[in-house]
Amino acid sequence: MLTEQQGCAVLKRVFQSRGFQVQENVPFKEDDVSFQADGWDPQSRVGYEYMTHQADDFDDLDPREIGRLGEWADAGRLYFFVIDDTNIETVEDLEWAANRFLDEVVRRKGARP
């Protein structure tokens, strides 16, 4: 089982290897959504947020806000990969999922970052 720290390191590596300029632990605020983002590329508007009870993330980012992030991803406004499932057994599983997410982002954006 991966910790948040290990998970964030994996995500940063995958996002960077795909060309995203990830900044870690940056404040994010747009409209009625605000939280401390685990990883965020303000240029490409692509990032990730690792939800763990341990880090009180479920308090920082509530279900309404998660819903808003989903709406914006569907609308192509910005793309946050939300790690809503903390039962991640292996690094490979997380790498595979992050790459599939970024494939979809690239497909929707129509271009690489």
Partner: peptide
């Protein structure tokens, strides 16, 4: 489950 959630990919796999 939305495609931007990790659980979506875990289910897929």
């Amino acid at each position: 489950n939305g495609w931007w959630n990790l659980s979506y990919y875990r289910h897929w796999k």
